[in-house]
Design a binder for these strands. Structure first.
Lengths: 108, 108
DNA sequence: TCGCTACGACGATGATCATCGTACTACGCT
DNA sequence: AGCGTAGTACGATGATCATCGTCGTAGCGA
């Protein structure tokens, strides 16, 4: 037990368009976001099966978290990832939907 | 006269989300786009008064043009810049509006 | 207790990029 | 013709970043 591990997340008001767009400019990170947006909520990092090493995957998830795009919380040794859709919508209305929609025409 | 100078522009169907988002991830380029979106149509590059050297400004305008975000055409020695709003809207609906709206709360 | 799993930290590396200065070109005006 | 203006081309440079491998750590199960 002790203190359960926690991960740093920016507050809603701290979200910067620069950080969000820089994070979303990378194809690998967009892939993660699209996968999360397509109903794969609360997935562990490993479940995404990214074609990169674990170190690189960790890096991408952290960039997304620090940009305020995803929320990460520990569950055992795994980390559950969730899209912070409402935070993003509140701060940058329509942005996430536009990008996910542009990337993944498979939905609908 | 001879052949008037022309500049290379990508076709609508060639627009890639990757190029567009990478271009828009830079604050200086977003500044240009926001300025164009706020009614400053057909402005010459120099009219933007960017806080960078001319070489750098040229670079940014070219990145925007090659990403398909702006249209550039010569008029004398100057270059008139226009937002390709309809092309972007056709390819990535809502994207430009979301970014411009998030960046510039001054409008409205 | 002993692994096994999922992930983070650290340091390195190679690529990309934003920035610059300088030299060059094209066009218009006098 | 000569000059000024607007922008381009060409390196160069310093910073950032995506990627990796290795090692460390926390939790779970046998």
């Amino acid at each position: 037990m002790s203190t359960p591990r926690t991960l740093e997340h920016p507050d809603v008001v701290e979200l910067s368009l620069d950080a969000v767009l820089s994070a979303l400019a990378d194809p690998m990170r967009r892939r993660i976001v699209v996968q999360l947006a397509n109903g794969c909520h609360d997935q562990a990092c490993i479940a995404f099966e990214l074609p990169v090493s674990r170190s690189t995957a960790t890096h991408h998830f952290r960039v997304l978290r620090l940009a305020g795009i995803i929320e990460q919380r520990y569950q055992g040794t795994a980390i559950l990832n969730t899209l912070r859709s409402s935070c993003l919508e509140e701060r940058f209305p329509g942005l996430l939907a536009a990008i996910v929609g542009a990337e993944a025409p498979s939905s609908s």
